[in-house]
Design a protein around this nucleic acid. Sequence first.
DNA 1: TGTACATCAGTGAACGCGCGTTCACTGATGTAC
DNA 2: TGTACATCAGTGAACGCGCGTTCACTGATGTAC
Lengths: 209, 209
Amino acid sequence: MSVPTSRSYHHGDLYNALIIAAAELIEESGSLGFTMADAARRAGVSSAAPYRHFKDKDALLEAVTQLGFFALGESSRRIALSHENGSIDTIIALGQNYVAFVQEKAPFYDLMWGDIGTRAMDDEHFNRSASGFYVLEAAVGAYLNARNIKAVDKLDIAIKLWALVHGFAAISMSGKLPHFHPDADVAAMLDSSTRLFFAGLDTVSVSDR
Amino acid sequence: MSVPTSRSYHHGDLYNALIIAAAELIEESGSLGFTMADAARRAGVSSAAPYRHFKDKDALLEAVTQLGFFALGESSRRIALSHENGSIDTIIALGQNYVAFVQEKAPFYDLMWGDIGTRAMDDEHFNRSASGFYVLEAAVGAYLNARNIKAVDKLDIAIKLWALVHGFAAISMSGKLPHFHPDADVAAMLDSSTRLFFAGLDTVSVSDR
DNA sequence: TGTACATCAGTGAACGCGCGTTCACTGATGTAC
DNA sequence: TGTACATCAGTGAACGCGCGTTCACTGATGTAC
């Protein structure tokens, strides 16, 4: 918020300051339409300074994207810790958190799921961006263990749930839902379809147990 | 392909020619990065001519977006007609068609689900853009009728299936899937999760019948 | 049927402006001796 | 501890260019009389 008044000629941590400045600008404006000069100004430096730390604007956006994935992963971990391990409630809460994250940070969605977020990344970056998914996969694994279901693959189930949840997030963000169903409640629909999905799973796995 | 050599000073149908030119450029380049001059050139007119028919570039993109929704709706109708009415196969085929459409027309996805496609539209445009969904809803209704399931709402189910399918489309397009599951088959996963979903529905509706 | 005139879809050239990026230069920092 | 020097993170100004859009003008079309 307040710019340090006693800043010296050298910033100290301009790299991170720029990432945060860009993220704030994106969040406040609700779009990716900030300029490098905007980000530099907010970080308290001239418009040429960012180029000491980022090759170009794309590189800065990539870093902001990583921050978005990190935030999603962190909030997923918090959700998992605050719910009973192995419960379906954990899985549902993770999905609702995902949807809420996308709704609250709509422009970040474009970053994370647009050209930049889906570009090829090295393993380290990928794993960081995927940490939220691994939380879901672990929650599914715990659920299957708790119920002693062995006939299904937790990775397979986690991907299917991810698709469901991501679809709800995308649809809700598109703003089209109220046209179809004026008082549709995404969180409730996500809850019931997750339960429906696991109920279906039971009919399959029961015969295998 | 071939520009009519005997074209007079007046084009005749420049409005539609520009929409098609823009759509082709998007498809060929795989991005939305064409210029108004590109579209005009392809339609065989000068770069100022488009402004007789479209207020600005956004208006042209909106028209292309409508074309995308129309194409999706048409292919959905074809799928529905070529499968047994009331069958789960129809529903699955509609989903797989949706995913294939998004994969094949990736840049159109950005148009249809980005800023432009999700902008407020009048009822006529909305209904045209939603015609694919109505095909799915009808297929769900036919399925429920055929099985004499009355306890569930076809609109509710259709939205949930839409979310699932859309999620698979988005995830598959992001290119991240192979990182998690090297030989994941989206069409097969969509098939099995749709069946799982309806199996779950049976466990609910059985008790109501 | 022929001429005058309004209308409007085209042309070609240029404008303008936003913004990413570069350039020559400067101020601060740290380290060798 | 003090001085010289390499290093590098900053500055301020400007460049350049891509591209959407406008402008004055022209060619074709259709209709009134």
